[in-house]
Structures are given as structure tokens and as C-alpha cells.
């Protein structure tokens, strides 16, 4: 019975794609500018000072089922949950609190709206969220998901460490899709992830420090990286080496330091090798396997003792290769 339902649903969905995907067809890609079938929020934080609101929208005119995973950056452990978004439905939740299913949520409250499903609260958390379009637990790419993460300052003080970025959206590939829990990001099933990323930044030992805040200031640029090789089934962390090449404003190229990590990493750009340091610089990261990145800069007025933050997505360098995301089995 279940197989019948899955088959019929899949057939209908495939036929439906004639009407829906044709209107939004674009070259396959991993970017932040178009809806996709896999959404990745590389940096998700819930702590005493910051919380993350995840916002996901179904841009399609059919109900979209979504399977999401929290990936803990410390343990590489995962927790998954399911969402069901009606046509064009946006939804949101705070990572600290999750979202309950409550038909009696009051008008205007955080739970108001059609409940997308039970979303677990995370408490203290640092890691990523990955969401995949499915139909009856079978991955089916429709390219209808978009999302944003808003990392909010919750201290209530004078700091303004609130940042937002677009979810990394991975579109369907050029082939016929997948029918199992291994999503191959090879350009055929899904688009390939990039291995080269470029970040323009303000070195924290640059002359004059922050160009706007002046002498009593500092700038720290934080890079968060998640491998595109993800195994939620066996909880197997992927090891990655990032080779850094830096350029200062005098076109002087230097290398390193390189960064090695497993599973997930969030680190500050080390400008020590810049020679000399200039107010603006660029670093290019070449990864040993495909990754996604987001960057967040913290600008502090050390005289006032306050800071503000800004996040943005990272430019890619045009080099992509194959990886895979293995979903955990469903009952």
C-alpha cells in the first residue's frame, strides 16, 4: 500500500514538474540566488548571547515535503525532523525553541500559521541545518525551496551582533534524479558543490583597523565551513583541508596558514601571512573536497566596548567536484 502511494505520488509529481519546473528552469547550480532542492544553512547558533531564526519558504504551487537535519558542529551528531509546507507557504522557527504543533497558537504569535511539523528545540547549539525536498521520504528535486538564517543578538544590550545570510541552495542536476537516500552531487542527480571560495575581508591587524570606526576598533572575520560530503546515516565526519592563498592591496600573494577540520568548522581568518597587511585583502580557499561557506565579520568599537556583526555568502571560484549527502534511513 505504501509502495503504491509512493509510486503514484512520484508519478504525479514528475508530471507536475512539467508545469512547475519549466517556468523556473535554470542552469544547475549551488548558489544563493535561486530556489533549490537542498538548502544548507552552514552557520546556525543558539547560545546565551545569540539565537538563530531559520526561515524557509516553499516557492512552488504544490505542497512541498521537506526533511531537515540539525548537524551539531561539535559532535557531528544529527537530529532530523520533517516539514510539510503548503503552496507558497513560508515558515520560521527559533533554533533555541524549535516549533511545536499547536492549533491554538494565538494570532501573531511565533507559532501562528499552518504548523509545518514538530521542530525540536536545540538549546545551546553550534552547527548547521540541512533540508532536502522529499515525497513520502523519497528525495525528489523540485527546486522550490528558499531560505534565510537570521542570527540574532539576544543580549538586549548595546551590541548589535545580528547577521543574516541566504541559505545555500543546491538545485537538481541534469539527470533523472535519485530514488534512494544517497543524494549524489555530481551535476547529474544534483548540482556539484564548489571547492574554491573567495572572501574579501578587512584584516584585523590592518593599518587604521576598521576603515569607518578608526583607531579604537577591531575587525574579526569568521568563516564557517561545512563539507558537502555528509553522511547522516553513519554519522561519519568528513575531513577537509583548506589551503589559503591571500592577496593584499599591493597584489602581493602569500600562502597559509592552512586549516584542517573534520565535520564542521568555524574559525577566524588569520591574516598573519599578509605582507604587508593592508586595509583590505582577499583570501582564496581551495578545499580538498567540496564545501559550502558563509562569512561573518564582527566590527568592534573598543572604546565604547560594543560591536556589530554582518554575515554574507561567499564567492565561489568556479571549481566544482562530486560529493554526496546520505540521509538516514526512515522507518
Amino acid at each position: 500500500m505504501r509502495a503504491k502511494r509512493i509510486a503514484l505520488t512520484t508519478a504525479l509529481l514528475g508530471a507536475f514538474a512539467v508545469c512547475t519546473l519549466a517556468a523556473s528552469v535554470a542552469s544547475a547550480g549551488v548558489d544563493h540566488d535561486r530556489p533549490g532542492s537542498i538548502l544548507i544553512f552552514p552557520k546556525v547558533v543558539s547560545s546565551a548571547t545569540r539565537d538563530t531564526t531559520i526561515r524557509i519558504s516553499n516557492t512552488g504551487n504544490m505542497t512541498n515535503q521537506v526533511r531537515c537535519f540539525y548537524l551539531d558542529g561539535d559532535t557531528c551528531g544529527t537530529i532530523d525532523f520533517d516539514l510539510s509546507l503548503t503552496k507558497q507557504q513560508p515558515t520560521q522557527w527559533d533554533v533555541s525553541n524549535g516549533r511545536t504543533v499547536n492549533l491554538l497558537d494565538s494570532f501573531g504569535s511565533s507559532g501562528a500559521g499552518l504548523d509545518p511539523g514538530l521542530i525540536p528545540a536545540q538549546g545551546d547549539f553550534e552547527g548547521s541545518v540541512v533540508c532536502v525536498e522529499v515525497v513520502d521520504d523519497v528525495p525528489v528535486a523540485q527546486n522550490k525551496l528558499k531560505g534565510e538564517a537570521i542570527i540574532r543578538d539576544v543580549t538586549g544590550g548595546d551590541d548589535r551582533n545580528t547577521s543574516a545570510y541566504n541559505a545555500v541552495a543546491i538545485t537538481s542536476g541534469t539527470g533523472s534524479g535519485t530514488s534512494d537516500n544517497e543524494l549524489v552531487l555530481d551535476g547529474d542527480e544534483y548540482a556539484q558543490c564548489d571547492t574554491v571560495h573567495r572572501v574579501d575581508f578587512i584584516p584585523d591587524d590592518s593599518p587604521g583597523l576598521d576603515p569607518v570606526l578608526g583607531e579604537t576598533s577591531s575587525v574579526v572575520t569568521n568563516v564557517t565551513v561545512l563539507p558537502c560530503d555528509l553522511d547522516f546515516s553513519r554519522r561519519a565526519p568528513t575531513s577537509v583541508v583548506l589551503n589559503a592563498t591571500l592577496w593584499n592591496e599591493f597584489e602581493v600573494q602569500t600562502s597559509g596558514p592552512d586549516t584542517s577540520f573534520s565535520c564542521w568548522a568555524s574559525f577566524s581568518i588569520d591574516p598573519a601571512s599578509l605582507n604587508p597587511a593592508t586595509t583590505f585583502a582577499t583570501v582564496e580557499y581551495s578545499a580538498s573536497s567540496p564545501v559550502v561557506m558563509v562569512v561573518e565579520s564582527f566590527h568592534s568599537d573598543t572604546g565604547l566596548g560594543v560591536s556589530g556583526s554582518a554575515a554574507r555568502n561567499v564567492h565561489t571560484g568556479g571549481a566544482a567536484s562530486t560529493s554526496s549527502i546520505t540521509l538516514s534511513a526512515t522507518p
Partner: peptide, 30 residues
């Protein structure tokens, strides 16, 4: 049922990917 599923998917994906698409785009990450 399996054939119907595959046919449906193939129809959808085939149509969706059949149109010419430029590798260049309006983008914030390239």
C-alpha cells in the same frame, strides 16, 4: 506502478532540463 513513477519523473525532469540554459547568470556568488 514503478513504471508509472519512473515515466512521470522522466517526463518532468526531461521537460524541465530540456530548455537551453546559459551557464552565465545574474549572481551574487560568482
Amino acid at each position: 506502478l514503478r513504471t508509472a513513477a519512473i515515466a512521470g519523473l522522466a517526463l518532468g525532469v526531461g521537460f524541465a532540463t530540456g530548455a537551453p540554459a546559459s551557464a552565465q547568470s545574474v549572481t551574487t556568488d560568482e
